[in-house]
Amino acid sequence: MMNYIWGGMIVFSFIAAIFSGNMQSLSDSVVNSGQDAISLVIKLTGMMCLWGGIMKIAEKSGLTRVISRFLSPLFSKLYKNVGRGSKTAEAMSMNITANLLGLGNAATPLGLEAMRRMQEENPDKTTATEDMIVFVVMNSAAMRLIPTTVATLRTQFGSASPMEIMPATWLSTAMSLLAGVITAKIFSKLLNNKPRRVIALKRGFSK
């Protein structure tokens, strides 16, 4: 998909430049973009190293484990076939905690482990289970306590208070997460009940 989107952006720009007569500035932008990309990454590099280092200390001092222990009971309620204190629940809550702390590197392997454990219990190996759907949706709605990347860029562009957006971010993420999980649950219910209803109807007819 990315192939078409990326290609589309470039071809569309070229066509737009023909009609608007902006060919010179399009050309200039190509020449400058490489440099712009590097300067964008350089702006973020320092913070990514710093935060990676700080969060590694958090991980090694057991902070991730403490937070994840708080989240774990919530998870066994949210997921149908994930037992309280099971290895799956542990991997899940560690994954979400790592996301909360902005530990992208640590979060992905933990999430993949949770997926692998859910897949072991999955009767149909090519179809996602209800729990998997909720889990992937939770991962795609990023819950991050401290938005370091955003704050770094805000500082670079002269924000007087780069972190002031934090409460708004939390509220938005929470609403997004809620909407995603509710949708997942509702559709799982609808789709799971369908076959049963069909069977009930058929039985009704045969009588």
Binding site: L112, M115, R116, M118, Q119, K125, T126, T127, A128, M132, I133, V136, V137, S140, A141, M175, S176, L177, L178, A179, G180, V181, T183, A184, F187, S188, L191
Partner: peptide
């Protein structure tokens, strides 16, 4: 894990994004 049929994952995730 080799899941091909993701069912309503994309829908729910996009509704979360939209929200």
């Amino acid at each position: 894990v080799g899941i091909k049929k993701t069912r309503h994952t994309t829908l729910a995730a996009l509704i979360a994004d939209f929200t």
